[in-house]
Design a protein around this nucleic acid. Sequence first.
DNA 1: CGGATATTTAAGTCATTACTTAACTATTTG
DNA 2: CAAATAGTTAAGTAATGACTTAAATATCCG
Lengths: 106, 106
Amino acid sequence: MEAALKAIAEPRRREILRLVWDAERPAGDIAAHFDVTHAAISQHLRVLKEAGLVNERRDGRRRLYIARPESIAELRAQLESYWDEALTRLKTEAEREERRGNGRQS
Amino acid sequence: MEAALKAIAEPRRREILRLVWDAERPAGDIAAHFDVTHAAISQHLRVLKEAGLVNERRDGRRRLYIARPESIAELRAQLESYWDEALTRLKTEAEREERRGNGRQS
DNA sequence: CGGATATTTAAGTCATTACTTAACTATTTG
DNA sequence: CAAATAGTTAAGTAATGACTTAAATATCCG
C-alpha cells in the first residue's frame, strides 16, 4: 500500500487519477488539464503506473492511460483494514506488555 | 485532507498513530517502540498533531498523545467521497467539454 | 526519406523530508 | 537550589520529489 498511498497523497496525482477514472485518455489530453509541462505529467503518470493505480496502453504514437479499479479497491481495502486493525493490534500489544510485567511506563 | 493524507503516507507515522489509537501515551513510551531517536519521534508527533490526527496534553514533564477520532473519521470520509466523486466529477467535465464543442481531443 | 506529432527520458534545480547530534526548556525531587 | 527526567527545538545532512528545459524515441504521413 506504501507506493499507492504516497502516490495519491500528491494532489496533482489525485486529479490525474480522477481524469482517467473510467475512460482511457492520452497523456497529452491529461496534460492539457494542468498548467505544468507535459514532462511533469508524464512523470506523475509513471508514479501512478508504478504504484499500480493506472494502466498504460500504446496506440500508435499515443499512450493511453486508465485507472486500474482492482488496485484502487485494494488500497481502499487496506486503508479500511488499517482503521480497524489499529484497535485490535493495540490490544494484543497491551497484553504482551502486561505479560512481561507491565513494562515501559517510562 | 492534504496534510492528514501526507501524514499517514509515512509508514512510521501510521505505526505511531496505531499506538495512540485508543489510549494516551507519553512521547517516550511511543519512542521506545522504534529504533530511532526520541527527537525523530517528536518530529513525527508534531506532523501528526499539525495534521490534526493526534492531540497533545501536558502532564507534568510528560507529554501525552492520543488519536483524534473525529479528524480520522473526517479523513476517512474525504477519501470515501474522493472514490465516489471521481466518477461524477468526470461526468460533469465531459458534459462541459461537449458543450464547448467536443474540445481537447489532442 | 523527412518533417510533424506524441510522449518519454535525461539532467539539473530548488524545496521538502526523515533523520542525527547537540543544545535548550520545563518539571520534579533530593 | 541542583541534578535528574521528559521532551522539544535547532542545525545540519543525505535522500527524495516536483518541476524545468533540452534531447531522445517512436510513429505517422506527405
